[in-house]
């Protein structure tokens, strides 16, 4: 199971933005557009061994906090 800090590190790589933190969302992050969303989904899939692929709520997720919440509900985040 991944941690919040591990997830944020991976999201920084996925969105090519070293400023990503728990308050980041698709409004305050330039690269978090439709292309960035695909990178976020691919990153989550890799981190969760494809478990996140089945979670429909993640497909339209718009913030890091929302990702935290959804992954926790599915026991994929510490």
């Amino acid at each position: 199971m991944i941690t919040e800090s591990e997830l944020i590190e991976k999201l920084r790589l996925a969105l090519v933005d070293s400023n990503i933190n728990e308050n980041s969302n698709n409004s305050n992050t330039d690269n978090w557009d439709s292309l960035g969303q695909l990178s976020v989904l691919a990153t989550l899939s890799n981190l969760t061994n494809k478990e996140s692929d089945k979670i429909e709520d993640l497909r339209e997720v718009e913030s890091v906090l929302e990702i935290f919440r959804i992954l926790r509900v599915h026991n994929l985040l510490k």
Binding site: S34, L38, L41, K50, D53, K54, E56, L58, R59, E60
Partner: peptide, 14 residues
């Protein structure tokens, strides 16, 4: 809806 289609395909086609 690109991310939705991507999500559906990866969750189903694979």
């Amino acid at each position: 809806e690109g991310s939705n289609v991507y999500g559906w395909v990866t969750a189903n086609t694979v």
